[in-house]
Nucleic acid binder design. Structure first.
Lengths: 165, 165
DNA sequence: ATAGAGTCTATAGCTGACTATAGAATCAAG
DNA sequence: CTTGATTCTATAGTCAGCTATAGACTCTAT
């Protein structure tokens, strides 16, 4: 009775313990619950959430899904389907296919950005410090001349190494 | 004197006209002004913004900068520097270098995601429909087992097919 | 008994780049 | 002169996935 952690045959975990073991922050766990991604097995008399082992598998599922690029909404949908006894394999595959296509598109995009940036830098090196524009950022290359209303003016966000590809 | 558009030697544009010609939305133009990216040459007696030709070059600069991945804050900084007569070429190059590194990192990340996703899909094909977990999304591969508190659990966003899978 | 850690709910803020709304004024055409 | 488009300012909302705060409880160790 004096054990540091009380373990029944199927041990139950408080949210902080789950956080520590899973690496997912406490607030995030509650947030996940609000998004129907996880559900505590029960509560203590005082309202503390209690999780069983399966939460770790579930969190792994969520993480894995995120890793391959699914949104939390998608993951929640999959989980809901599975909970209702359905096996949304077909749809999940569709999602995966869609995500793969997106990934390829983004890869191509990023490669384009990269090439463009490198060429711009190279152009600076050639041009040196001419006057007129700021460090030759525009004249460096002539793509994207702000005259096309149709093409989507895509701009990648980047702050530093935040998440978001 | 009865022309559709009054043009002086250096013609001035109203915000809607700038929007139409540049492809940048009116609200975005005002937003850019609030971020010190553009400034109207003047105003009409009634307060309408008036832009001269140079705004298009400026917008091109902004777009170009976005294309290579600079944030609006960075662009604003560059513009402010240039306006004060400085030539922030060195810093701009630093930014570019940093951005290039980021780009490479993200490229690598995306490639990793892609590979992982493809392997997961392939694993599904091999495994078929086993029971236990949802469509084998977890067992398909064993990376990212939600046990590592240190490594940042990076997850890319993707909207794609919102509701209908 | 009390300090301090952990947990609870509810709500608001963060990131970046917009986008939308409300309500008023102004302008151009018929 | 009236209608409708355009513009103005100021403020709030969007997206996704968290993250932080406030204020109240509860649990554990000394």
């Amino acid at each position: 009775m004096a054990a540091t952690q009380q373990k029944t045959s199927t041990s139950l975990w408080k949210i902080g313990e789950v956080a520590k073991r899973s690496g997912v922050a406490v607030e995030t766990l509650r947030f996940y619950e609000s998004r129907a991604l996880i559900v505590p097995t029960g509560r203590t008399h005082s309202g503390y959430r209690l999780y069983d082992e399966s939460v770790f598998e579930r969190l792994a599922f969520v993480k894995k899904s995120q890793t391959v690029g699914f949104t939390l909404d998608q993951v929640a949908w999959i989980i809901a389907e599975a909970r209702e006894g359905r096996r949304p394999c077909h749809e999940v595959r569709e999602m995966a296919r869609g995500r793969l296509a997106e990934l390829d598109q983004k890869l191509a995009e990023l490669k384009r950005y990269r090439r463009e940036l490198q060429q711009t830098v190279a152009a600076w090196d050639r041009v040196g410090e001419k006057d007129g524009m700021i460090c030759g950022l525009i004249e460096g290359l002539d793509a994207g001349s702000a005259k096309a209303p149709s093409a989507s003016p895509i701009g990648p966000r980047s702050k530093s190494s935040r998440k978001g590809i």
